[in-house]
Design a binder for these strands. Structure first.
Length: 324
DNA sequence: TTGTGTTTTATTGCCTCC
DNA sequence: GGAGGCAATAAAACACAA
């Protein structure tokens, strides 16, 4: 890492002097206000801007020796980059979100900035991209979860209906068998022959039993232990049917190396390069809490920051997603 | 004009990799 | 051990409503 030096020049009696302060000491992060600079040559419209004259925040020591820089008042605050500078940086970031030393130097030269500034800009830009990407991922996963939830609720209702049907038909069958025992008639209360009633009951029972099985499978999901659960695609979906909980046409922040089976988005595009803000797939997110098992199931570790309060409608319930 | 929330620029400390 | 990356954070700059 480049040393955290503070560079500022002084005015008045100290005109022409520059101080280099080593920032090694001091606790905690931050502290941007400790930096000062003097003006510099205009680069990429640096002198433009809505509020006062825009100049690069950092100024090379040799530049500071020029006399024009000594007659201004100090300290100057840190300045924002001009739109032109930002535009060029953005373009460069879209080409490649990592910065090799040569490219950093070249960009700094073009923009009239310190290489350190370019590096910091890229670092902050990567952080912004990551935040946005995580938000997008969350939104997509949440939408998929909501869809699945709705489907689950519908199945549950269906199951209740069929269960009632089974109970009703069973009762009728029992009544029928009771009357059969007394008068030997082969027609039930509904007017159907007894054999038809048995078939109907059997069919309804099988269907209901199947759905009960599904619901049980889903109940297991909802009450998974330890905040995580495994989705058994076959048990849940009756086999052969798979849900892509996440639109596979969109990219994700999730790194391809670790989540290679997941279709949250196309992974590992061009070995880490990004095409645009929505189009990366690169990035090393050691902290990502999503992980997969052999059955192709995506887990969410609720102990991490990715977990969103909205995910849990009940404590202990999991958020889960599947992919094909 | 001022208070407040957001964005941007920058530092610090820790971690990983070579 | 040095270089570079990232998370956390500070503070200036900016936006905007009251």
């Amino acid at each position: 890492m480049e040393s955290g030096r503070l560079i500022f020049s002084t005015a008045g009696s100290c005109a022409g002097q520059m101080l280099f302060l080593d920032c090694g000491a001091g606790g905690g992060g931050g502290g941007g206000g400790a930096m000062f600079h003097r003006g510099a040559r205009p680069v990429l419209g640096m002198e433009e801007g809505g509020r006062g004259v825009k100049r690069p925040f950092f100024t090379a020591p040799d530049e500071l020796l020029e006399e024009e820089y000594y007659d201004e008042q100090l300290p100057e605050k840190k300045r924002r980059l001009t739109p032109e500078q930002v535009h060029l940086l953005e373009r460069s970031f879209e080409e490649e979100n990592k910065l090799e030393p040569e490219r950093k130097t070249e960009l700094a030269r073009k923009l009239g900035l310190q290489p350190r500034q370019v590096a910091v800009w890229f670092q902050n830009r990567r952080a912004r991209w990551k935040t946005k990407q995580l938000e997008r991922d969350f939104d997509r996963l949440k939408a998929s979860f909501d869809d699945l939830r709705a489907e689950y609720d519908a199945l549950l209702q269906d199951n209740h209906r069929l269960h009632s049907q089974v109970m009703s038909l069973t009762e009728k069958l029992q009544e029928k068998e009771a009357t059969e025992g007394s008068d030997g008639a082969a027609v039930d209360a509904s007017g159907l022959p007894a054999a038809d009633v048995k078939v109907a009951v059997a069919d309804a029972g099988a269907e209901a039993a199947f759905e009960v099985q599904q619901v049980k499978a889903e109940d297991r999901l909802s009450t998974g232990s330890g905040g995580s659960a495994v989705v058994d695609a076959d048990a849940l979906l009756g086999g052969g049917r798979q849900l892509a909980a996440v639109d596979s046409s969109v990219e994700s922040y999730f790194p391809g190396d670790e989540y290679h089976d997941c279709v949250v988005g196309p992974m590992d595009q061009a070995a880490g390069g990004i095409q645009s803000e929505e189009d990366d797939g690169a990035g090393s997110d050691e902290g990502c809490s999503y992980y997969a098992d052999d059955a192709g199931v995506l887990f969410a570790d609720h102990g991490h920051h990715h977990h969103h309060a909205d995910d849990d409608e009940e404590d202990g319930q999991i958020s889960w997603w599947m992919w094909n």
